[in-house]
Write a protein that binds this DNA or RNA. Structure first.
Lengths: 253, 253
DNA sequence: ACAAAAGTGTTTGATATACACCCATGT
DNA sequence: ACATGGGTGTATATCAAACACTTTTGT
């Protein structure tokens, strides 16, 4: 919670540095222990959660803004980002209007205006992220996709829209590179697809299909140490992967 | 071309009524005589073309703004609109900065600031549109998709991005309802797909496939009067069409 | 009668689905 | 030895692509 002093300073800074009326909200997906995760922040003293977000500097490209915002929350640079929608209902900013409304009159409160929010989703390697709370939050943590708490504002809508966009992308683009560690096994990759799509896939058919895309390299040595038969390790063939990203799969017509 | 007086008035009005820093640009697709068309505006005394666009009223949902803007250009209400991307490069607004820069100092010129532009594409029935120039243009006309002139600003990028988005949509959603008249023949519908995709399709396979979607009703009577064998007339089954819109085709995984 | 447009059907190959068997490893 | 996870293969259905024939109509 900010004091009035801090708030005034924040508003002045914001007015000076940020583009008015525009915010960015990010849905950050990670994958760990067979579970799809999303990065959420929790406000102080309240069981209210929200998506990592921020504002756009006056001379900053929006994609760069999204990257900067996520760098602050995750410690990662050059994150895979996908713009998926703008949320522009005037009512959606009620939160901003209410935020600290008792502390500052509307004119002086930079948060009081209407905000459009540009939605980005990000795919990141779970292990490389160090979640960092922001100024308004007491915690920043991963939550399971099937255990997302109630969210503030229209963040529920933003989250769901992001998930839909991600599922759509799955149909015509490869996706694992940004979510998996360098090396992984076929069953692990399958689990990723299964959690995103929320349905079981056939082991053998999945393997055939994903291999047919030609974006995987199999390592010489299988993973040792675990119980049962040692699975092979795979990594993405970056060149083919990028090609598939731009060209897309199948095509339909 | 506006006079200085008009410009000042326009800026004052804009400052009062519109959200700063945000614009909307629309790519309006129509279909006529076997050709896909896009609606373009031409500036006075210059061979510069641009997309229909405008701004968002302070309390107006963005989708409504897009609809209002297009109503002014086409006379149509409740247009099929699809938001597809936000263009947020700071450099993209150079045009705004240059526009009338000699007439008004930057501070007073509302156009001088940075603008994000939300891109919408629209699908409309060619015959129902009455193109109307705006304040800055001398004409508003349909242009063939394969004969688009040079465009101002980043409108070339916006146009191409819209076309890509439209082609993508074709893969998982039906599309003809908003572009075709109430009744149409199968070859006409095929022509639509062919011009969007810019490639020839097999007559028979197209028919089978499109019928398999179950979104068409065949009229009892074929179209009379033309030369050659009379083609059947089809119309969209609205209920199934809407279902296909939300559910999508195939799915992939 | 014939050219051009449109309707209908068949053959073929590719891809997806469903399912069965074998292999390796820790307990 | 056996349960479990993992690798590999095969039959079948389903769908897309390529292609041929017939029907209608104006000239």
């Amino acid at each position: 919670m900010l004091t009035k002093q801090e708030l005034i300073k924040y508003c002045n800074d914001a007015r000076q540095n940020y583009l008015d009326h525009v915010s960015i909200d990010c849905v950050v997906f990670g994958f760990h222990e067979g579970q799809m995760k999303v990065l959420l922040l929790k406000t102080h003293h309240e069981e209210k959660w929200y998506l990592p977000g921020g504002f756009v500097l006056k001379e900053e490209p929006i994609e760069m803004a999204a990257n900067r915002i996520l760098m602050e929350r995750t410690g990662l640079d050059k994150i895979f980002l996908q713009q998926f929608h703008v949320f522009g209902d005037p009512d959606r900013s009620k939160f901003h209007n209410d935020l600290y409304k008792d502390m500052l009159p509307t004119q002086e409160n930079w948060f009081a205006g209407r905000f459009l929010s540009i939605g980005y989703y990000a795919l990141v390697d779970f292990f490389e992220v160090t979640p960092q709370p922001d100024q308004f939050s007491e915690s920043c943590t991963w939550r399971d996709l099937d255990d997302v708490p109630e969210l503030q504002l229209d963040h529920e809508l933003i989250f769901k829209t992001a998930l839909d966009a991600l599922r759509l992308q799955l149909n015509y683009q490869p996706i694992g590179y940004n979510l998996m560690p360098k090396e992984f096994t076929m069953p692990e990759l399958q689990k990723l697809y299964e959690t995103i799509l929320d349905k079981k896939l056939d082991r053998r058919n999945f393997q055939r299909r994903i291999l047919a895309f030609g974006i995987l390299n199999r390592a010489e040595q299988p993973r040792k140490g675990g119980a049962h038969k040692a699975p092979y390790l795979y990594s993405f063939d970056l060149e083919n992967y990028r090609h598939a990203l731009t060209e897309g799969f199948k095509g339909g017509w």
